[in-house]
């Protein structure tokens, strides 16, 4: 039994221009101590699906229309968004790290006040314990001089250090699942390497499961065990990391792998771009959303609705075409 199972999650946004089906029937699961990657371009619904599991969608305009989020046998979507159950799960059981640490940390409170708040809320620690524990956490995430820096404010930290503070906060209550939403997009590559290695270590140490949400296939190649590829609000392919990279089956995944320059490529390699634009999610046709950009498309794709995920050699692919041929 998986630790977290998301079934047929649908989150829609009602905008001025029409209904946006940001997440349209997404299912995935994560087991204990597992690292999974959710990969997709901006607007594919990867972040919204994560926010939806924690009911962090602002409503209106957003609305979770359908689906189940089963965590430890309970459906989280049955709880009210701001009820006490949901609050104890957020941060306590499932923690989330955002792309932009500066906007997710409160600039008017010191780092200690913010971590302490979490510890008090979820673990009911007293002030002295809070301080000791917070310093311990900052040391673990590799912040030098933690005893002194704990009373600093977020703006006194650099981008990479802020992200470390975020990781410390997220891990402070020993959550079962850590969701990292584009954790390294705003930082430099060497810092990215530091942060990812740090997260991997901590996740091992704390026996936490990790969901890495990213647009960078490289990031998940190094760390994730299983990968879900999202496009236009749906999962188009999922499978183990080895399978996805060695034998991608969905045209989008294949395209994604061919269109990024690789550091180890031979000289003179040409990139094969995915033509066209990512779809506008308003008034989407019922056919496959990748159809206008798909080099493999056949007549069936134009006639029938978006294909459901089906099992092909241990992978799940949402495509009518057998791309292996």
């Amino acid at each position: 039994m998986a630790l977290l199972t998301v079934e047929n999650l649908k989150t829609y946004f009602h905008t001025d221009f029409g209904l946006v089906k940001a997440v349209d029937g997404v299912s995935y699961e994560i087991n204990e101590k597992e690292i999974i990657g959710i990969v997709g371009e901006s607007g594919c619904g990867k972040s919204v699906s994560q926010l939806s599991t924690l009911q962090l969608i602002t409503s209106p305009p957003g609305q979770i229309v359908d689906g189940k989020v089963i965590f430890e046998g309970r459906d989280l979507l049955q709880f009210s968004a701001n009820g006490s159950e949901m609050r104890s799960i957020r941060g306590g059981q499932i923690a989330i790290i955002f792309q932009e640490p500066m906007t997710s940390l409160n600039p008017t409170l010191s780092v200690f006040q913010q971590i302490g708040e979490m510890l008090e809320l979820h673990l009911k620690m007293d002030k002295e314990m809070q301080r000791k524990h917070s310093i311990e956490l900052l040391k673990q995430v590799g912040i030098p001089d933690a005893e002194r820096r704990i009373d600093d404010y977020p703006h006194q930290f650099s981008g990479g250090m802020r992200q470390r503070v975020m990781i410390a906060m997220a891990l402070s209550c020993n959550p079962k699942i850590l969701i990292a939403d584009e954790p390294t997009t705003a930082v430099d590559v060497t810092t990215q390497a530091q942060l990812l290695a740090l997260m991997q270590n901590l996740v091992n140490q704390y026996n936490t499961s990790l969901i890495i949400v990213t647009h960078n296939l490289g990031v998940v190649a190094r760390y994730a065990e299983r990968i879900y590829v999202m496009y236009a609000g749906r999962i188009v392919e999922s499978g183990t990391c080895d399978d996805i990279f060695n034998q991608p089956k969905h045209p989008y995944t294949i395209g994604l792998l061919k269109c990024v320059p690789r550091l180890d490529e031979a000289e003179g390699t040409k990139l094969v771009p995915i033509e066209g634009l990512p779809p506008n999610l308003i008034n989407m046709p019922s056919t496959c959303a990748f159809l206008p950009r798909c080099p493999y498309s056949i007549d069936k794709c134009r006639e029938e609705v978006w294909p459901p995920l089906k099992r092909v050699n241990g992978q799940y692919v949402s495509c009518y075409v057998d791309t292996r041929r």
Binding site: T191, A193, G218, L257
Partner: peptide, 27 residues
């Protein structure tokens, strides 16, 4: 060398065997 090792390559087989240099501290 550190910069190169920090850049992930979207290929599981290659990634498994690469040596990673994690730099200390920050710029």
């Amino acid at each position: 060398q550190a910069l190169i090792s920090a850049i992930p390559i979207p290929d599981r087989a290659v990634e498994k065997h690469r040596k990673q240099i994690i730099l200390r501290g920050e710029v």
